[in-house]
């Protein structure tokens, strides 16, 4: 194969992201997949997006809106 390049967006490796490492993936034109040069993750764009969604599992309040008062934060209804 010829050398890999960047895909249409600079997708980061979802597996490395979950261990707090931002590392751009490269795109393998022959296999039509992104791959990480540090860990062993590789996958299609669809798989990357799905894994990115998974990476958000820890942000349980990500879409909540809070108000702050003396007793702490209260979720806005």
């Amino acid at each position: 194969m010829a050398q890999a390049g960047k895909g249409k967006l600079n997708y980061r490796c979802p597996s490395c992201f979950m261990r707090d490492i931002d590392i751009d993936m490269f795109y393998d034109e022959d296999k039509k997949e992104y791959y990480c040069i540090r860990c062993c993750y590789h996958g299609s764009e669809e798989d990357v997006l799905q894994k990115n969604q998974m990476a958000r599992f820890r942000y349980k309040s990500m879409l909540k809106r809070f108000d702050f008062d003396d007793d702490g934060q209260k979720e806005r209804k």
């Binding site: 992201f17 931002d22 990115n52 990476a55 958000r56 942000y59 309040s61 990500m62 879409l63 909540k64 809106r65 809070f66 108000d67 702050f68 934060q73």
Partner: peptide
């Protein structure tokens, strides 16, 4: 960058600003 958003919504940013105000 932290993927703290869904679609085009990121209420976390405003919670962060509001907690600083507090």
């Amino acid at each position: 960058r932290g993927m703290v958003y869904e679609g085009d919504q990121y209420p976390y940013l405003f919670n962060l600003i509001d907690q600083y105000r507090h």
